[in-house]
Amino acid sequence: MSERGKPNELGEYRPLSYFQLMEVSLRELLVEKGIVSDAEVQATLEDMRARGPDAGARVVARAWVDADFKARLLENGTRACEAFGLDVPALRLVVVENTPQVHNVIVCTLCSCYPRMLLGLPPDWYKSRHYRSRVVREPRTVLQEFGLRLPEAVQLRVHDSTADMRYLVLPMRPAGTAGWSEAQLASIVTRDCMIGVAVPDTSGSE
C-alpha cells in the first residue's frame, strides 16, 4: 500500500518484486471480494506505522518504580500490560530481566517475530540475515558492534522467538536516576534497550 511499483520520492521507477506483486494481488482480490476495504487496509497500516517503542518504555519505567508490577510482568507479561491499560491483542509476552549477572538479547532467526504491540515495527537490521544468523552464534561480537561491551562476568542469554511467544528485555535501571519521574525514566528506555542490543544511557538527560 506504499508507493511501491510507482516512482519513488526521487522519481526512480523500480519494478515490483515477487513478494510485492503477491501482496498487491492478494490485497486487490480481498478488496474486490468485499472481505476488506482499501480504507481498512490503510487504517491498519497507519496504526502499525504510528506505533513506536513508547508503550514498551512506559512498561519498563513502571516496572522500575513498582516492584509488584515488575513481579507480575515477569510472571505473565500480557496480563500485566493489560492491567497497565495497554491494548496488546494477540501478544503473549515473555519479559526477560537484565541483572548484574545476566544480560538478555532477542532475535527471531526464522523471520522477524517482534513485540510490535509494544515496540512498533521492527528496525530493518532486526530483519536482516546478518543479525538473525550472527546474534545466535557470536552474540558478544554483535553486541560490541552495537557499542555494547558486556563485562566478562556477565552471562549472556539469547532468546530466539520461534513460535507463539514474543519477548521484551527489562533493562537494569541505571544508577543516578533516584527520584526521577516515570516519564523521565521512560525517556531513556530506547527500542534497542528493549531488544537487548543497548542499555539505558543517562548522559543525554539530566
Binding site: 545466535v136 552474540p139 566478562e152 552471562q155 549472556l156 539469547v158 530466539d160 520461534t162 513460535a163
Partner: peptide
C-alpha cells in the same frame, strides 16, 4: 522454552561457558 548451552550448540563458541540460547520448541 528450552535452554541450550552455547558451547554445546557451536563447538567454536567464543563467549562464556555458561552463555545460553533459549528457543521455543
Amino acid at each position: 522454552r528450552v535452554r541450550f548451552l552455547q558451547r554445546e550448540v557451536w563447538p567454536d563458541y567464543a563467549g562464556r561457558a555458561d552463555d545460553v540460547i533459549e528457543i521455543e520448541i
